[in-house]
């Protein structure tokens, strides 16, 4: 089966073919949803952020530079939306167990295994900056360079942030 490249789908979409955008939704909804979910740790709101991400992408599609990777652009929107969400909840300074506890009951969504659950709880104890690089690197399998593009950071900064994040995550998990 002939699989169309993202750039071709974007081109088709700009030409008025909304079906092409549905293909892009199908292709990236899971990844985008997981970016949001791992950053904010709320299943329902991650769904909302995913919707917002795609709608914003659709509305701004004409501004997208097609020489770049579509998914990087999409993840960038998703990441920004997730960070804005955290800011709006005034949790950016002091994310603690409150976010991963009772109200949103993340267990039901993360508990593929107890290990997944403990990892998510540990991730939520990282700063948002560290959390984002861990999510993009390990859950979305992006390279330093791709993460740099998404976060608008030099590769060197991405590496430094990622390595520090790992060190902190390791310490958090070791404390448990």
């Amino acid at each position: 089966m002939n699989v169309k490249a993202d750039s071709d789908l974007v081109k088709d979409c700009i030409s008025g073919n909304k079906q092409a955008f549905e293909t892009l939704i199908e292709r990236y909804k899971k990844q985008v949803f997981n970016v949001a979910l791992r950053i904010i740790s709320n299943y329902d709101d991650a769904g909302e952020i995913t919707q917002t991400t795609f709608i914003k992408a659709f509305e701004k599609l004409h501004t997208f530079d097609r020489t770049r990777k579509f998914f990087s652009w999409l993840y960038r929107i998703a990441t920004n939306e997730s960070i804005n969400y955290l800011k709006s909840r005034k949790n950016i300074e002091s994310l603690d167990e409150n976010l991963v506890s009772s109200e949103h009951n993340p267990e039901q969504h993360f508990a593929e295994s107890e290990q997944d659950e403990s990892i998510q709880q540990a991730i939520m104890r990282l700063t948002p900056e560290h959390r984002v690089v861990i999510v993009l690197c390990h859950f979305n399998n992006l390279s330093y360079k791709e993460i740099g593009t998404i976060l608008d950071l030099p590769t060197r900064t991405v590496k430094s942030r990622l390595f520090s994040a790992r060190r902190n995550l390791r310490e958090i998990l070791n404390q448990e």
Partner: peptide
Amino acid sequence: LTQRLHQVQLVEPPGYLQKTIANMVS
């Protein structure tokens, strides 16, 4: 640690998501 992270499964998004977004777009 990195092996543990890579083993974490992606969570399935809500079933209605695709259709909802497609509807909003169209």
